[in-house]
Nucleic acid binder design. Structure first.
Length: 573
DNA sequence: GCCGTTTTCGGCCCGACTGTTTTCAGTCG
């Protein structure tokens, strides 16, 4: 059994314990043991003694060892004998937790969605202690809605929705500063809901305006400090608005950015100092409450270097930040964009317009990388047009003395493993990207043969969007990314982190492994329009999630360093 | 169930909101 499977089993045990009404700390202990395993960066094979890990004790280490040896757990088996597995599914229903499910099972023999719905319809639920008419109605509604609401939505979808919401929040006079919080602010690829923190002196008025101006389909909850609504924008999405006073804005933002696990780490740290953290501030030992003007200041108070939202996942970020600055990549480290398209293939703006926009962004250089001839749908360039394009690149370059446009191409790796241009053509270009746009259904061996051919070509400097995935839409081709990282390292080929919100390809997890292997990363927008140039921020944040440092990113090189890189021949990393 | 140069017992992160209650349990994040 691999680590992920073991963690899942520990979580399942916790769910069972929750439903049978076990001591909540015992429930939490199984979850914590799982988290402790996840935080440990070693593989299961690399861990000699699981009980030596903090948070894993006698019982949990026994369960883990059993799972490793046999794939089964005696604790889990006996729980499975006690109550039906189908009850676990009920935990997905809003408003139901272990206690209530336990009551429903014992009193009404409810075992799954169907029997719960019947019990509600027959009015038997409202008679139970702790349940009432309203609960019964809510449960019925939650069962209905659960069927047509996806459990998680992609960062692409949620970013679009967040932008719409923000454009409206900006028009509300009762609201001062506001910020995204939660998973979206941390840059997670998928999430269940949206969170915003709003600064206001008039919570009542702010809440009224929000409900008037946003397309809200239902108000789930409303209090003095927060409102929760459902917005219908194709999917029904739950959105939380947390209302904070100007003084408590930063601590509230920190609290609702999470993650929950990160907050727990921070509160432990506070507790050791005799202090207490809440969304309202930090309560000192003498009882005085203090607030902060930035999150940076908040972390400094605890003797920590700043921890960006992207790595607040409750792993070891607090320990790391205590030792030294995390040194993660920031948007301001980016000096150029190495992947963009113009009207010569499928872009919407001319070469001159795109170059001007890149320069206006403050970049020192950019690479023009239109599509190659085989990508007919994108009007890929023939050898003739590609060579003609060099003249236009030279003309545009002559316009600037503080910006360099490099000539390049995004060349297709064909299904048979050959490349779309000969080396005689490629050697005339400054920067060659290779990527797969066809025959996604090939076997892993065939896909890897293509990627290997590209890596071994002396002119290919970068593999773009290495997995071909589209978040929430398609999983990509069958690439073995572990193997690709080895090939990239051997051949000195960089790997892309494509910043497009629909791609984020490679993912944070994979770029982290690439960095560990010494492979350089290029964070590119793959812009087809001027607006898309701004997607760089999301790419950088995804890299930060993978703990990427600027020195491992190709497009953090200064103008001079990048010019040298272009001139040099490929060598292994 | 786990943990400890404050402790081997008694804590375990903290608060909002809802619906059920007449002061609080359960759920959620």
């Amino acid at each position: 059994m691999n680590k992920k499977q073991i963690i899942d089993k520990l979580d399942t045990i916790a769910l069972y314990l929750e439903i049978i009404g076990e001591n909540p700390f015992k429930v939490a202990a199984y979850r914590k043991a799982g988290q402790a395993l996840e935080t440990d960066r070693r593989s299961m094979a690399g861990i000699e003694d699981v009980s030596a890990i903090k948070g894993i004790g006698r019982s949990t280490s026994h369960a883990i060892e059993e799972l490793m040896a046999t794939g089964e757990s005696s604790v889990l088996r006996s729980l499975q004998g006690e109550i039906p597995e189908s009850l676990l599914g009920l935990l997905n229903i809003a408003g139901l937790g272990g206690k209530k499910i336990g009551t429903l099972y014992r009193a009404l023999h409810v075992t799954d969605m169907t029997s719960l719905r019947e019990a509600c319809e027959q009015g038997r639920v409202s008679g139970l202690p702790g349940f009432g008419k309203k609960t019964e109605e809510k449960l019925l509604k939650a069962i209905q809605e659960g069927k047509n609401r996806p459990e998680i939505l992609s960062i692409a979808y949620m970013t679009d929705l967040a932008e719409k919401i923000e454009s409206i929040l900006g028009t509300i006079p009762e609201i001062g500063r506001f910020s995204r919080a939660g998973s979206l602010r941390r840059g997670k690829e998928t999430m269940k809901d949206l969170d915003f923190v709003l600064e206001t002196q008039d919570p009542e008025g702010a809440a009224d305006r929000i409900l008037e101006r946003l397309p809200v389909s239902e108000v789930i909850g409303r209090g003095d400090a927060k409102i929760t609504v459902l917005m219908n924008d194709g999917y029904k999405v739950s959105v939380d608005f947390r209302l904070a006073s100007p003084e408590t804005f930063i601590t509230t933002l920190h609290h609702f950015t999470g993650s929950k696990e990160h907050n727990i780490l921070m509160r432990h740290l506070a507790k050791e100092r005799g202090e207490k953290i809440s969304e309202y501030g930090v309560e000192l030992e003498n009882g005085r409450m203090i607030t902060f003007s930035s999150e940076n200041e908040f972390y400094h108070h605890f003797g920590l270097n700043e921890i960006p939202p992207e790595v607040r996942e409750g792993t070891d970020e607090v320990d790391q930040a205590r030792r030294s600055p995390l040194g993660l990549i920031k948007l301001s480290d980016i000096k150029g964009d190495l992947h963009m398209h113009s009207t010569w293939s499928d872009g919407s703006y001319t070469i001159e317009e795109m170059a001007g926009a890149m320069r206006a962004k403050g970049y020192a250089y950019a690479c023009l990388t239109d599509h190659s001839k085989s990508l007919r749908v994108a009007d890929g360039l023939s050898e003739r047009r590609l060579l003609d394009q060099l003249e236009e690149v030279a003309r545009v370059n002559a316009l600037y003395d503080d910006f360099t446009l490099y000539s390049g191409v995004e060349m297709d790796i064909l299904p048979d493993g050959t490349l779309d241009y000969t080396n005689e053509v490629l050697e005339k270009l400054d920067f060659v990207i290779a990527s797969i746009h066809s025959s996604f259904n090939q076997s892993q061996a065939e896909i890897m043969r293509r990627l290997e051919a590209a890596c071994r070509n002396p002119y290919v400097r970068l593999i773009a969007h290495p997995t071909g995935r589209l978040l929430g839409k398609r999983s990509g081709y069958r690439a073995d990314i572990g193997r690709l990282i080895k090939l990239a390292s051997e051949t000195g080929t960089a790997l892309e982190l494509n910043a497009n919100r629909n791609r984020l390809d490679l993912s944070a997890e994979w770029v982290r492994k690439a960095q560990e292997a010494g492979v350089k990363i290029a964070i590119d927008t793959d812009s087809h329009s001027m607006k898309m140039i701004d997607e760089m921020g999301l790419g950088v944040r995804t890299a930060a999630r993978g703990w990427i440092r600027p020195e491992n990113v190709l497009n953090t090189l200064s103008a001079g360093q990048f010019a040298d890189f272009i001139k040099r021949k490929k060598v292994p990393f």
